[in-house]
Write a protein that binds this DNA or RNA. Structure first.
Lengths: 191, 191
DNA sequence: GTCTATACGGTGATAGAC
DNA sequence: GTCTATCACCGTATAGAC
């Protein structure tokens, strides 16, 4: 299959999945939206609905951008690194807000199978970043690395969710604040 | 309908929703599990599948327990209050781990409609708790209340998710740590 | 009221003719 | 690529028995 037809189908599937959910979007609807007049046209390119969704997750995830941020972020010390990485990741996720919905679908329908596969590839780079933070200095050494990452990730997620809620993606409006990480950094910094 | 038949149906629906998801659990399966030989037996008690799910969310949510914790938690100062509330809420959510899955279903299938309704009743008490924390002293006054709540909630959620992942509810195992809140409190405390 | 039996249009998916 | 059937299953509605 050419890359054009593939992207055409993925775009149709994405639009429907985002607006009507996974089970709310039928293969017949996706086929129609993609310009086919019969469902079989879809099954010529993707084995089944699940394979179509997996292709969508593989194509739309922020994997590359997150890896780039973690590898290239700079800072004078640990707190500076954390602050810069947090801001850079927030900026990345602004462009991937719709991916949040795909992630939810993955969690619900496939027990997070597809996102976990991607996470497996990102995790090594995350650990490498955490070690960079620790070695850059200015961070309390009595805080374990997993604990620091859980706090960092939790705040990042809560910031993304607050952002998504504010933009009406998942619910109703709520005020967003970009400095939530500063409180954590204050707690992590050496006295 | 008697409370027995109601709880019988809810238990059957919960077991199936948790193990096979919302669309993976058919009304026929639920009816069978609840002891009926025809689907219609279900429709005598719940108007449709969505109403059945809503009743389940209403019946299984931690609303009462969370309200009780927020109203009754004590502490010598702000940091102490935050620490005690965090621990108490963590303890509550241990008993409601399966509710996480119902929450996910609500987010995915109903845009979080049912959980938002519950949240609307909890929020006033949450704000009252935040003001108690601030007035109890020992907390930086330059940190806005919504920011403090977002950080507190984000860490609570990340702790719950880490717990759920560790228990295999949502995915594969990961180490859990109960002191993630201490880092935040360190950042919130007055110098 | 509570249960059973049956029926309707939709679904994901397959098979075959053009 | 298109059409058309066909399959089992889905949520739901209805008619009727006790």
């Amino acid at each position: 299959m050419t890359d054009d037809t593939r992207q055409n189908i993925l775009a149709a599937a994405e639009a429907l999945f985002l607006s009507h959910g996974y089970h709310g979007s039928s293969m017949r609807q996706i086929a129609k939206q993609a310009g086919y007049s019969a469902v079989s046209g879809l099954y010529n390119h993707f084995g089944n609905k699940e394979a179509l969704f997996e292709a969508l997750i593989q194509d739309r995830n922020p994997y590359q951008d997150v890896l780039a941020v973690l590898a290239e972020v700079e800072g004078q010390d640990g707190p500076d690194l954390l602050r810069n990485a947090f801001a850079a990741l927030q900026a990345v996720f602004v462009d991937y807000q719709t991916f949040l919905k795909l992630l939810l679908i993955d969690l619900n329908e496939f027990e997070g199978r597809f996102v976990r596969a991607i996470w497996g590839e990102v995790m090594p780079e995350v650990l490498r970043f955490a070690q960079r933070v620790r070695q850059a200095g200015g961070i309390r050494q009595d805080v374990a690395l997993p604990l620091m990452l859980q706090a960092f990730g939790g705040l990042l997620i809560s910031s993304m969710v607050a952002n998504a809620v504010a933009s009406g993606l998942l619910g109703q409006a709520a005020p967003s604040d970009e400095t939530v990480i500063d409180v954590l950094i204050e707690g992590l910094a050496v006295d």
